[in-house]
Design a protein around this nucleic acid. Structure first.
Length: 274
DNA sequence: GCTAAATGTTGAT
DNA sequence: TCAACCTTTAGCT
């Protein structure tokens, strides 16, 4: 589930349902008992997303500035589950719930995150500082990313996944944006020209914004789908991601998959020729 | 019904 | 380089 667009949605959602309210925090699973205690009884004042990292600012009152932040990274399995319930209380936790946040009749359960911790302001700044340009953020600095990319011999397909370069891109957006650009993932960053980088960045901004709106990743243009009208079906959502052996939507060549930097890389060998 | 893989990162070896 | 985190789903039988 979680690439940058998902985390952005969750940040918005969390603020909408729990923002401005005094929150009960607990760790039914027990692993985050100390952290939950630090948040329990505080007011959720703000949320933010940078790449795949979510921050939630908690304060002592409805008007105070946040003085501690919940920092969550979902990793591969992590998930937020929200429930509406009557005032007597939420349903008992299902599965291993690391953190439960409740205000009024709304509860958000966090399960399976890679990171879940309470940070101070300087520590939050440290996390931001080691993250790169997020296509979903207004303060993103694609120029800095370009300056690093153009000096790197690392394949562009690997660079796009480096969160300190571009934040929020995962395996789906990586594969899809490279396909849409007609770019071989193995090409070194230094062999990507400025025009191509600008195109990649603009496409990431457009695709990820669409992902935030739709709540899912859709990268295909209608003319490349089996069903050309209406919302894209699950089968029609991607050009190459998880389409190993299926014909490329543009040229018909079977899509190939290969292990690449500890992940599976999908591409069309013709549309993305070296 | 079972197994493997999955949109990710960290920390140990 | 690999295990761990922890759950869901796709693809088998």
């Amino acid at each position: 589930m979680p690439e940058g667009h998902t985390v952005r949605r969750q940040a918005t959602r969390l603020l909408r349902v729990l923002g401005g309210r005094r929150v009960r925090a607990s760790s039914p699973q027990g692993r985050f008992a100390d952290g939950a205690r630090l948040l329990d009884g505080r007011v959720l004042r703000s949320t933010d997303a940078h790449g795949k990292h979510l921050f939630a600012g908690f304060a002592t009152s409805e008007t105070a500035r946040p003085d501690r932040w919940l920092h969550v990274h979902l990793g591969l399995y992590g998930v937020w589950l929200e429930q509406d319930h009557d005032p007597e209380g939420p349903e008992p936790p299902r599965g291993a719930v690391r953190l439960r946040l409740t205000a009024g009749s709304t509860t958000a359960d966090l399960r399976g995150p890679t990171a879940c911790e309470v940070l101070t302001a300087p520590q939050v700044r440290d996390v931001h500082d080691r993250l790169g340009a997020d296509p979903l953020r207004r303060d993103a600095d694609p120029e800095a990313a370009w300056q690093r990319l153009r000096r790197s011999r690392t394949p562009v397909g690997a660079l796009l996944m480096q969160q300190d370069l571009v934040a929020g891109v995962g395996n789906v957006y990586r594969a899809e944006v490279l396909f849409r650009a007609g770019l071989d993932p193995h090409r070194p960053g230094s062999a990507v020209d400025r025009e191509m980088w600008d195109r990649l960045w603009a496409d990431l901004v457009a695709l990820m914004r669409a992902g935030v709106r739709a709540g899912r990743i859709v990268t295909t243009r209608p003319e490349h789908r089996v069903r050309r009208s209406g919302p894209a079906s699950r089968e029609d959502a991607h050009y190459v991601y998880r389409r190993t052996g299926l014909p490329c939507r543009v040229c018909g060549t079977p899509v190939v998959a290969e292990p690449f930097v500890a992940r599976t890389l999908y591409r069309c060998p013709v549309c993305q020729a070296a």
